[in-house]
Design a protein around this nucleic acid. Structure first.
Lengths: 142, 142
DNA sequence: GTAAGCCTTGACGTCGGCGTCAGGGAAAGG
DNA sequence: CCTTTCCCTGACGCCGACGTCAAGGCTTAC
């Protein structure tokens, strides 16, 4: 199988496969004419890489999985190094999710505070001595 | 106040301020010798930018806040355009957090499955006919 | 006077994971 | 034979928010 076919079967592009090869992740045999040649086991490696990439793993983090498969194991995560990557990734995800939730909370509070301030200004404007000048900037939305 | 002092007071670098200026976000007056000159209001603008950056806002997303302050409002989020950015950011955060939690769940399941497979292999090895060959790759950890 | 420490502009480097183009050879079908 | 479609290598582009270096000018302290 040549590079175009493998790429298509994995839902990616030849450029991507050449890139992986340049990183030493997915080396290819060569046909007499210099064309890269792949087999079904390469497809399996590639799918492993792509799955992890979809999870947000760096290329380097997929390396233990690929090496594990190439060592003859049925699954890329049959090796301790792969499990270690899983665990590290879980920690990273938990930390990141935690940070994002903290930011979400802060932004939510800022929004609430700003809306409250705006509404209080509007209320003041309706009551005392006629409307006060309001922000004239932007805000096509709503 | 010159660029170095402003940068220090905002906990950033002169390079960053020049970058903001190049993006039209924080223009500077110039002294006779060509040096950039800033005042306290610039510090306020800069702190607004930095706060939002810390929240993960793109530089472009901070623009409405900066313009709002420059228009004379007491807070950067006193303008509708700023509130719209807050709301968009909340949606983005919710979406991102949701995706990350989904990934976290998937990775967690993969890890659990892989560990189960490993333990079953170990159990098999202890019982039937002597230890089977085990993965020899990686895994310094533990 | 001279060294240190600020400032200026301009331009290139960084990081990851490729996309895209240029300038060729090879293979397959009519 | 010709065209199309694949393949090759090499190299530059991209994105965002700066870092870093070069080469020079201003100021200030000694």
């Amino acid at each position: 199988m040549r590079i175009g076919e493998l790429a298509a079967r994995a839902g990616t592009t030849p450029r991507t496969l050449r890139y992986y090869e340049s990183r030493g992740l997915l080396p290819a045999r060569r046909a007499g004419n210099g064309y890269r040649t792949y087999d079904e086991s390469d497809l399996k490696l590639l799918r492993q890489i792509r799955t992890l990439q979809d999870f947000g793993f760096d290329l380097e983090e997929t390396r233990p999985f690929v090496e594990c498969l190439r060592a003859g194991h049925p699954e890329g995560d049959s090796c301790p190094a792969s499990l270690a990557v899983y665990r590290r990734k879980l920690e990273e995800l938990d930390a990141l999710i935690g940070e994002l939730r903290a930011v979400r909370a802060k932004v939510g509070r800022q929004l609430a505070r700003a809306e409250r301030a705006r509404d209080e200004l509007a209320a003041d404007a309706r009551v005392p001595g006629g409307p006060e000048p309001v922000c004239e900037l932007g805000g096509e939305l709503r």
